[in-house]
């Protein structure tokens, strides 16, 4: 069943199973996106992701299908992150609980990238993640962030440049100090 059909069932029948299917489908990209934005604070990212889906459920009627459901969720996640950052004066410190030695190679790479993200500004982090991790177009990033197209492009270029420099200068070997 496609997204539109699931959304219609949530709106018309208040179908919890349909909403659970949507959550199951989108929890992975939304949680990863928030993990990148919070520079690897997994508990905060998951809390925000919970709020994102709760907000999506209550505001489902305002979804106009002008963009995809995934784009809409990412824009809610981005706004949630900015609100939380404003409220909590988010710091760039990475909690020690994030070091998970038993994780797989892919998970290690995720943690590495999340930590590298702390060297980027919020705008750069957001644009680089949406462009390279989610695979969104510049126009979709403009819709999500509300930034002008030129700003999005410069954030992507600058963020990419910073990450390449960090990785190529053997930054991963100094992971514990990030």
């Amino acid at each position: 069943m496609n997204d539109q059909a699931l959304i219609a069932r949530v709106l018309l029948d208040n179908d919890q199973h349909a909403f659970a299917s949507l959550v199951r489908k989108y929890q992975h990209p939304i949680r990863h996106f928030l993990r990148r934005l919070t520079s690897g604070d997994h508990s905060l990212a998951d809390d925000l992701a919970q709020e994102v889906f709760l907000a999506a459920y209550t505001k489902m009627q305002s979804f106009r299908a002008e963009s995809s459901f995934g784009t809409w969720l990412h824009s809610i996640a981005y706004r949630m992150f900015l609100n939380d950052r404003r409220k909590a004066h988010y710091t760039r410190e990475v909690s020690s609980e994030l070091v998970e030695p038993s994780t797989t190679h892919n998970a290690e790479q995720d943690i590495l990238v999340e930590r590298l993200m702390s060297h980027l500004s919020v705008g750069e982090r957001t644009c680089v993640t949406l462009a390279y991790s989610v695979g969104m177009s510049h126009q979709e990033i403009v819709e999500i962030t509300g930034m002008p197209l030129g700003t999005v492009k410069s954030h992507i270029n600058r963020g990419k440049q910073k990450l390449v420099e960090l990785v190529n200068s053997n930054q991963p070997q100094k992971r514990s100090s990030l």
Binding site: Q16, F19, A20, V23, R24, Q27, H28, P29, R31, H32, D46, A49, Q50, F53, L54, T103, T104, N106, A107, Q109, D110, V113, V128, T129, Y132, S133, L163, V167
Partner: peptide, 20 residues
Amino acid sequence: LLEYSDYLDGANFVETVQSN
């Protein structure tokens, strides 16, 4: 490098959303 991995467990997350 920037690709998301697939290791996130979704079952508990979905349950928590539903209970919320």
